[in-house]
Design a protein around this nucleic acid. Structure first.
Lengths: 350, 350
DNA sequence: CTGTTAGCGCTTTCAA
DNA sequence: TTGAAAGCGCTAACAG
């Protein structure tokens, strides 16, 4: 490199409010005032302080402020991990809203943590409240204990006494998409996904069952596989081998649905002619595959935003009634369910 | 109406090290010792303290500890946003590594922030060091200023005097993938993407040019479009209208490549027969489309991990030489480049 | 092994 | 409009 750095940059102690005050020739109280944008400061003082702070490269220490004001100005968020668009969208919604509220966000990923309860407690140590995904595998007692000491909102989890809850609608959308498939004349539908894995999936299966009930037929047991692509591929193979029989698959999420679909078609089965496939989430790939995947779109971003909102309300004490908030979802009909594909010219558009 | 003191909050002040000490009948020093896992405590004291802490639902205040020990035990990370797998992977790598190092991660998304420099400075206030994506649109002077006061690592950005840098290899992979396409007998290649947008893309274009030079032909100017799906679609239309001519497209990322490909095929052009398309990143969709997208896989996760590592080294003062670290990438050949597709049975496998 | 005691850097009365 | 001073909760000498 051209800039032969002669001296490695050191990161020494750094300026404090005291050094700034000294340099500006005022008291630390005045420095604090101008830095907090207090009105009661003379223009002269303000200017001096700002200059001094600038010259000293003053970077305040949030910890000291937090200690003094007795809150962190930060929201914690616990997610299982970040693959797929679901968690990312959630996180984006959360972060944007938190930022609007002037709160930092401290993120923790649950997967792979050796001692999850410990990790969560540590997180709790540095935030004013925390949100977590219902599926983060955090023991119930940990959640409850936390809920006792600071605001906690559970995302897509079950209602609990000490915490708030926000989730997206599942049961009736599941009922709707199932009814749609039944409406195509399919009769041997399978629900693919493990209802015990999360409240979301449990509710989706409930909707699946309800739609069958309305049609006067009894729904099959859920085919309990987890949500990874590999599971979808394996499931497709079971169908191909004849271990399983179905003319339509209602999958718990899109990744599963896509994997199944690709494997099925790769092996000569037609989708949707031989077997229809629908998913959940509306990931990007859902509109790239052939045929386009019929699915349910969740307002995941808004879910995240609501979580941050709720947290803030709790923290600042706006005593809303504790309870569950549900955000609506909606069907995205493409052609994997048996509907005719749209004209070619617009096929690639969402 | 109640007076100002009447908070409706169910989350009152909470226990402190003092209340725990009192309850346990020991000094705060002893409490601190057992909580820090210090060896020099009698079993009896330890037990008492732990009990007291438990009974009181004691949650330590990280801010107080930070103030006392003079560091935050947190790494900051600035990302533009979180759509697509790239940033998520990066973040996962970063978080996992940070956790291993005992550091929390404070995340900030740059996109949509009104006053970005201010936001970043605020972030700097609560972390011991921070990593940011080169493409986060943070003004150079802000980065440099920050680099002067605490460790900063730039991810996929240009080398700077005051900060460390980590990026994945671009130029020679771009050269390689371009040479591969040229090897298929294509001669009118177009590079799609804006080299001015990020050092990554600039370097990829450089590799594109270099490959042409090696083949004794002169590379075309880059077709400067941004990286969204919509831009890919628009680009495809330009090709279809004949505004642009090419028998192969080297796209700056997969999303662009996929959008182009889908549009082209939707309008009757054959890929790769009429025009080959290759991308960069190896996103999930890349192996779901037909034909499978030839692309370059980046070790994005490791990039994130290295960033956290570097940060930690700097923070703890292990004075490594400042400079740029480069992580290798590799080609993923599928069939959008003109290579024959694999046998059907394994088509869906990565 | 335990307790006492200074701070860490900032905010915030309270007086002036 | 300003400054002095008292904490915020925790850690880490330093004695005992």
């Amino acid at each position: 490199m051209a800039t032969g750095s002669g001296h490695p940059t050191r990161h020494p102690a750094g300026a404090t409010i005291y050094s700034v005050a000294e340099r500006a020739g005022v008291s630390i109280a005045s420095v604090s005032r101008v830095l907090q944008g207090s009105q009661a400061v003379s223009e002269k003082t303000r200017k001096r302080v700002l200059e001094a702070a600038d010259e000293l490269h003053y970077v305040p220490l949030a910890a000291a402020r937090s200690l003094a004001v007795r809150h962190h100005e930060a929201h914690g968020l616990v997610l299982p991990e970040l693959s797929g668009p679901y968690y990312s969208e959630l996180l984006m919604g959360f972060e944007y809203r938190a930022a609007e509220l002037g709160q930092s966000v401290v993120l923790m990923l649950a997967e792979g943590k050796a001692d999850l309860p410990r990790a969560v407690r540590k997180l709790a140590t540095r935030v004013d409240g925390l949100a977590m995904l219902g599926s983060s595998a955090i023991p119930d007692e940990t959640v409850s204990a936390l809920g006792g000491s600071k605001p906690v909102v559970l995302i897509a989890g079950d209602e609990k006494a000490t915490v708030d809850t926000v989730s997206s609608e599942n049961t009736s959308s599941a009922r709707e998409i199932t009814a749609h498939v039944l409406g195509h004349g399919r009769t041997r539908l399978l629900f693919v996904g493990d209802p015990t894995v999360s409240p979301d999936i449990r509710d989706r299966y409930a909707g699946f069952v309800a739609a069958h009930a309305s049609a006067g037929i009894v729904a099959a047991e859920a085919v309990t596989v987890s949500l990874r692509e590999a599971d979808g591929t394996a499931l497709a193979d079971r169908l191909l081998r004849g271990d399983l029989e179905a003319d339509a698959l209602v999958c718990a999420n899109d990744e599963l649905a896509l994997a199944v679909m690709v494997r099925l078609r790769g092996s000569g089965l037609r989708v949707p002619e031989d077997v229809a496939v629908v998913g959940w989430d509306d990931v990007m790939t859902a509109r790239y595959v052939e045929p386009g995947l019929t699915t349910v779109r969740q307002p995941v971003r808004e879910l995240g935003a609501r979580a941050s909102d709720l947290l803030h309300e709790r923290i600042t004490g706006s005593a809303a009634p504790r309870g569950a908030q549900v955000i609506p979802t909606h069907l995205v009909i493409r052609s994997s369910c048996g509907c005719p594909p749209p004209p070619v010219a617009v096929r690639a558009l969402p």
